[in-house]
Computed example of a mutant assay.
Amino acid sequence: MTDPTDPTDPTDPTGPRLEPLPADWQRALAVVAHPDDLEYGCAAAVADWTDAGKEVVYLLATRGEAGIDTVAPAECGPLREREQRAGAAVVGVSTVEFLGHRDGVVEYGTELRRDIAAAIRRHRPELVVTLNHRDTWGPAVGGAWNSPDHRAVGRATLDAVGDAGNRWIFPELLAGHGLEPWDGVRWVAVAGSPTPTHAVDATAGLERSVLSLLQHRGYLQVLTDRNPEVYCREFLVGAARAVAPRFGGVPAVAFELFPR
Rank of each mutant, 00 (worst) to 15 (best):
V185Q: 07
A164V: 11
H101Y: 10
E55K: 14
A72K: 14
Q84W: 02
G100P: 01
R217L: 08
T203C: 00
D51Y: 02
T197K: 14
L59M: 01
T2D: 06
Q26D: 11
I68E: 06
E55L: 11
P73W: 06
G218Y: 04
G143L: 07
V96H: 00
L18I: 08
A30E: 00
R260Q: 07
F170M: 07
V46C: 05
E19L: 15
H133T: 10
R226N: 00
R186I: 02
V141N: 12
V237Y: 14
G41Y: 05
V96W: 02
A119M: 07
E180G: 08
P22I: 00
A89C: 06
E75R: 15
S209Q: 15
T70R: 15
P78R: 13
W168E: 13
D115F: 00
G249V: 13
A61D: 00
A119E: 06
V141A: 10
W168V: 14
G184E: 06
R260D: 00
I68W: 03
V90R: 13
N227R: 12
A47N: 12
D201L: 06
G77Y: 05
V190N: 03
D9T: 10
D69Q: 11
R17E: 08
L257V: 15
S147I: 07
S94N: 10
G143T: 11
Y219G: 04
N132F: 02
S209K: 15
P7A: 02
T130G: 01
